[in-house]
């Protein structure tokens, strides 16, 4: 596990080892920590604009002793075989899950208009980490579907009023890139309905696709 203070210190250290400026999007537990939804995470999930940025970031974390590991035991078989699966790097306790351009086919919007928070780590180079609105974080948690993801969605729901229609519309727009996105989202919504009020019309939007 890595806490908020250590995560910030780690990013500052990585910025010192970068050879060029990099902008990426944090999702998952890292995004939740930047947004103050939680104080620690097991994995640091980042999405880069292109392969070049991913390679540069990997070079920097390898200098810090991170080594690549397999996705087995973390992601199910379907996600292990997906084209846009992440690269995983670990050094013991915490782990990096590094995606390029999209998260299991779900394309992320890197434009300024879509970001809710921006964190700059300026050392020799600049590491800029964007955080997306809570609706995107919830949708991405439904897509990655790791053991702690459902709990994290519940945590976000404690603090935020989520626009479910917006989430479903985003998923529908991307269903061609990711054929199982609506299925995963529907499954997550059915589970969430047991604890939170989600209108049936939201699920009908999915069923009518």
């Amino acid at each position: 596990m890595i806490n908020t203070k250590d995560q910030k210190a780690l990013f500052e250290l990585i910025a010192k080892y970068l050879q060029k400026n990099i902008t990426c999007i944090a999702i998952g537990g890292t995004a939740m920590m930047f947004s103050n939804y939680k104080a620690a995470t097991k994995d640091i999930d980042l999405v880069f604009k292109n392969e070049e940025d991913t390679k540069e970031f990997v070079k920097a974390i390898k200098k810090l002793g991170y080594e690549q590991r397999s996705l087995k035991g973390v992601y199910d078989e379907k996600r292990q075989k997906a084209k846009s699966k992440p690269q995983m790097y670990t050094r013991g306790q915490e782990r990096f899950d590094l995606f390029t351009k999209n998260v299991f086919g779900y394309e992320l919007d890197f434009s300024q208009e879509n970001i809710m928070q921006r964190n700059d780590f300026i050392e020799k180079q600049q590491l800029i980490i964007h955080i997306l609105p809570p609706e995107d974080l919830v949708l991405l948690k439904a897509i990655t579907n790791r053991p702690a993801d459902f709990e994290d969605i519940n945590t976000i729901l404690k603090y935020e009023k989520i626009d479910w229609k917006n989430i479903v519309k985003k998923a529908i727009r991307q269903k061609q890139n990711n054929p199982w996105i609506l299925h995963d989202l529907e499954k997550t919504l059915q589970e969430l309905k047991k604890q939170h009020f989600i209108k049936q019309e939201i699920l009908e939007l999915i069923y009518n696709q």
Partner: peptide
Amino acid sequence: PKFTHQVNKNYTIEH
């Protein structure tokens, strides 16, 4: 603010 912007100590006027 259009977004919350947090920086480490090295953010300057020039940035």
